[in-house]
């Protein structure tokens, strides 16, 4: 039951998938995200980022001074129509 529990709601990535991937590849949070797509969905990882962080195997000291899962613009989804300054 806990195994099938969803961690990333947007991409429906389960606890099992994340735990196994972290274990198999000894992943950093970033690698874990890229391998599973957890945190790469519609919300931009706002909901699951802390959990993906915790499940990552590689908890180095760098974590203290660097946000492990980088934020990239745009931080909110943009409609293509709104991109080039066009009328929405």
């Amino acid at each position: 039951m806990t195994e099938d529990m969803i961690i990333c709601r947007c991409e429906e990535v389960t606890y099992k998938e994340l735990a196994e991937t972290a274990n198999k590849y000894n992943c950093s949070a970033r690698e874990l995200k890229l391998r599973t797509r957890a945190g790469m969905g519609y919300c931009g990882g706002r909901t699951c980022r802390n959990m993906v962080d915790k499940l990552a195997a590689d908890l180095t000291d760098e974590r203290q001074t660097q946000i492990t899962l980088k934020y990239q613009p745009p931080i909110r989804p943009i409609h293509f129509g709104d991109l080039g300054g066009g009328q929405s």
């Binding site: 709601r9 947007c10 519609y42 919300c43 706002r46 909901t47 989804p77 409609h79 929405s88």
Partner: peptide
Amino acid sequence: RGIYCNIGHCFECRVTVDGKQG
């Protein structure tokens, strides 16, 4: 899916309004 965070962070509640998605 329904509302989750209710303040715009999680995007779970997204719908199409007058043809505009998301």
